[in-house]
Design a protein around this nucleic acid. Sequence first.
DNA 1: TTACTAAAGGATAAAAATTATTATTAAGAT
DNA 2: ATCTTAATAATAATTTTTATCCTTTAGTAA
Lengths: 133, 133
Amino acid sequence: MNDYIHKLKEHNLKVTPQRLGILSIIQKSGHISIEELYVAVRRDFSTISLATLYKNINFMVEVNLLKEVKIPNGKSKYEIVKEEHSHMICKKCSKLEDLELSLQSVVQTASKKSGYLFDDNALVLSGICPQCQ
Amino acid sequence: MNDYIHKLKEHNLKVTPQRLGILSIIQKSGHISIEELYVAVRRDFSTISLATLYKNINFMVEVNLLKEVKIPNGKSKYEIVKEEHSHMICKKCSKLEDLELSLQSVVQTASKKSGYLFDDNALVLSGICPQCQ
DNA sequence: TTACTAAAGGATAAAAATTATTATTAAGAT
DNA sequence: ATCTTAATAATAATTTTTATCCTTTAGTAA
Ligand SMILES: [Mn+2]
Ligand SMILES: [Mn+2]
Ligand SMILES: [Zn+2]
Ligand SMILES: [Zn+2]
């Protein structure tokens, strides 16, 4: 059936229709902001509370089911956690896309240079997408 | 004298004591959040309005005198614009540090792969700093 | 220097974003 | 079917950011 059920239970979160609805919309959209998400979720759950949405987003981020993507000069978007990846954003159309890119050598260089032990990274490249060029 | 005077005039912003104070504190601190900045600025300008602070930060970001650094799981910090660089943040002590690192080959690879034309990037590596290890 | 003008500052209200509270509902367990 | 606890909805409160409006001041030019 739905994989979210498993993921939720895995993290000791009860499986509610609201949570499944939220996750399904985030999945479908790829990346979505809180406001966009609220509008979308309300199409399925007209009475859902904004507080419920915030609480769930926060929970899910805490248990690593969701990830916040911070956008330069823009509002954060949320996505379902998957393999580590970077992002590209188009300055014209504001489209946000995934980018699979190995940062291994960069991270290794950084670690050697600084003495830090890194276990996470966030890279957003900004520019103009092919369609907008 | 002070280099900020030149930078402000360059961007058609009037040179006020408040602005010089704000810039001087940001410079000294390296990276600073709005709240921290407000506390610090009020030591020099006890009556400065929070609105003035926000307005100035926004202006200065717009004219590229300041840059906002968005931190994963944390509040944004601001810094004086300088050469392009990346950042490292320690998950234990929350210290934020600059990291000079060439992303040229990564950006080039990304561009080839995606067709985007990139002119900006934001990379934050998260981990444990040497002192906290 | 003085006077003028537009921009900037300060006080405050308003708006937007997020979190807290509390009574009701419902998921998961027995 | 019942029970217990967590989740939801409604709402208030808090926090963050922006707008308004009046006063002050920086920059300019007599
Ligand atoms: Mn993504
Ligand atoms: Mn920096
Ligand atoms: Zn585009
Ligand atoms: Zn540390």
